[in-house]
Design a protein around this nucleic acid. Sequence first.
DNA 1: GATGAATGAGTCTTCATTCAT
DNA 2: CATGAATGAAGACTCATTCAT
Lengths: 196, 196, 196, 196
Amino acid sequence: MSPLNKQQLDQIRDERREEIKQASLKVFARRGYKGTKTSLIAKEASISEGLIYRYFNSKKELFITLIQELMEEARRELEHVHHLPGTPFEQLRNLTENMFDENSKYAFMLIERSRKDENVPEKVTQIFEQLPPNVLIDLLVPTFVKGQKSGEFSPGEPRKLLTWYFTIVNSLLTQEQGDEEYGLPDVDVLMRILAK
Amino acid sequence: MSPLNKQQLDQIRDERREEIKQASLKVFARRGYKGTKTSLIAKEASISEGLIYRYFNSKKELFITLIQELMEEARRELEHVHHLPGTPFEQLRNLTENMFDENSKYAFMLIERSRKDENVPEKVTQIFEQLPPNVLIDLLVPTFVKGQKSGEFSPGEPRKLLTWYFTIVNSLLTQEQGDEEYGLPDVDVLMRILAK
Amino acid sequence: MSPLNKQQLDQIRDERREEIKQASLKVFARRGYKGTKTSLIAKEASISEGLIYRYFNSKKELFITLIQELMEEARRELEHVHHLPGTPFEQLRNLTENMFDENSKYAFMLIERSRKDENVPEKVTQIFEQLPPNVLIDLLVPTFVKGQKSGEFSPGEPRKLLTWYFTIVNSLLTQEQGDEEYGLPDVDVLMRILAK
Amino acid sequence: MSPLNKQQLDQIRDERREEIKQASLKVFARRGYKGTKTSLIAKEASISEGLIYRYFNSKKELFITLIQELMEEARRELEHVHHLPGTPFEQLRNLTENMFDENSKYAFMLIERSRKDENVPEKVTQIFEQLPPNVLIDLLVPTFVKGQKSGEFSPGEPRKLLTWYFTIVNSLLTQEQGDEEYGLPDVDVLMRILAK
DNA sequence: GATGAATGAGTCTTCATTCAT
DNA sequence: CATGAATGAAGACTCATTCAT
């Protein structure tokens, strides 16, 4: 049988790389950088430990790559909020609900967790220092101000309120499932922080 | 000078043990269980690494001891809330402010962090599973209900509201200093979650 | 086109096997046994890594095969020296020049290097122990003695002088290009060691 | 009993560090950089593998340190040649004999070996490129010229002759014990290369 | 009691070798 | 026959724990 052609191999490589990123995202999000053994990543991705190193030079590089890409993705998501349908209140409500989605959950968890984690590689600390949360928050300010004008949102310094709001949302995400009995806080309860 | 007598030696031992617990509390709170090297604890306590092992059998035992004692202390603090002066609203406000105190801060940080941390010793996981946050929350329910009756607090399921409230407060504590620009959320903003 | 017949296939196999040996010779000669990654051999031979294993059972076997064949070849070359044209001095001069040839260079480099290398497979160590350089040297003794009698060579124990001479020649080969400024030592300067 | 004081500890540390350097020198000299396992260094130094890392950050750092210090030492030794007693011939003869001493042997072996080794850390390659052998050779040129004038040495380009001479001496050193039967070449035979 | 050098089990990383295609 | 992705054993490195002083 003939060997796979270049295109097929490239595709396998891309898929595998993606799988490893997804698997490591889950583990890093739960256990943090230092607490994550490469053996756990391998198990989560159902591959051998050594294979990770055909796709990433080190655990550190894998982690940094992950953080960089997630930050970029987060930025894109926030930039798009004002294109969502509905009023500003509905747009932010929507965004919040998305953040709790199975899909984005781990991404926000990892970013949130890593921001506080002193065990993270130097480079990651730098990324967070250079790109303060406000950069992301600022993207939402126009939407929020619009909501204030229409009376949907509480008056007050927009960046301050938004910062607190997302501090809280992010913190809750980190808990993965919040309190067992009541689940994650109702988005509407959270939105009270912003609502008039 | 005569050598120290038995009682004095015991006192030194107790003090030293306490110092090690305080030092390790700070480090564990910031870096988590796995991320904390015994060398860092020793440095924080200004002692040698080996000395830790004269007071605790292992890093694990030290950690477990810490968690157990902090949980006990937390319970005592919550039980006392209704003895504080002022209205229920003022009592909870007071409690919240205390939690952000330099003194208790690390304790709450560590507990909150450890609850989510999958790198923690099995025994600690068990402690949290057996002693759900509700046990602590339940201690505040009477106070809260009293506040609802007097119209200070929002109506609704008391345990649910309190659970969310402290989930949020605890999460914020973990961040140590919150957003750099705005600092920790204003306690009054937080209390909006409970307030009518 | 009709498929290749058995004979043609055998020829391809032989050629391929030879290519792999040539490529690995170059790499082993430069980097030694342990320092040579199979990936480097594959690259040098412009084939895939896996293909090596269709022609050799292991890196070790490839290496041993190489050493054995090179030793055999070296023996043949030395046996032929006295058939070369010219006086004994010219014959040894000729041999020496051949050793620095692009063709034989790597072979002598590898043998010389491997003789000193403690990272080499056990079997190779044995080959060198069982077949001491003297076996090769002995082949040249008649030629040398002839030259002594004719007054071309310095008097003295022939095997001793020859051993030193080739020790030196081999050592220089290992350096590949000697000192950058002056290149490899002039063969005539080397021959002074033997000359009267 | 009271703990060791600072000075004693510093001494232990210095001695240990020196022991590790000596042990690793022996192993690196015989097996090269890549072929040397840290476990072998540990065994040679009769310590645990982990201890190496309290004194050096990595096998690479240990190796680089070694090379740098040996180069420095070599320079000092060559600079001192013209202070040795005797004629220039005797001075170089003396130097050569020193190089074969049990003490310096491994040092010259390692440097010589590493210069040719393509498996060595980048930094080491740079050291050798920046500090070509000629820098060391140049230190001996005055002595050699003096010997030429007094008729002890062969006429000819001093740097060229010296370069070849030491190329050969170094190469022989690498073999550790040369041919078993005849031992290392007689220094006087070697000196013929330089002698008139 | 106190110190920090020393150990060794556990993790990260490399690379010869295998195997599905 | 040929490829290169995948595996896993072996080697580098970290750090909780021990122990001589």
